[in-house]
Nucleic acid binder design. Sequence first.
DNA 1: GCACTGACGCGGG
DNA 2: TCCCGCGCCAGTG
Length: 121
Amino acid sequence: MDFYKRLELTGQRIPYGKVATYGQLALLCGKPKNSRQVGYALRRNLAGEQIPAHRIVNASGILSGAGAFETPDMQRMLLKEEGIEVRKTDSGWKVDLKKDGWKNTLSDAVELRGMFDAMGI
DNA sequence: GCACTGACGCGGG
DNA sequence: TCCCGCGCCAGTG
């Protein structure tokens, strides 16, 4: 089981204009408790270059990874370009998970599992 | 093997 | 809602 390979495939399934959480991706990768590794992988670019890292936020909707981009407000700008509302709060820049969060379905999970098995990862 | 770290999550107060 | 403590586990030295 190659967690980072799985993360790469999973990340690419996040729809344009939507955001996903670390825990959500970890769950879809088959490792519910590896949310921290999701952040580690993105920071170190272990999940590929094309993965939409700007669409990944923590469980509160906070843009925790701003520091890993070229400029601190890059992530916020990219989300804005996709039509996602980003608000300034005391704890940082935040998105509305209820409105813009990716509501992945059971079939998404099943489909991913199928891909993992087929690729032996 | 050991201790520490970290783009995190969750329950309790 | 916010803050705190604890749990979690791959990487790193």
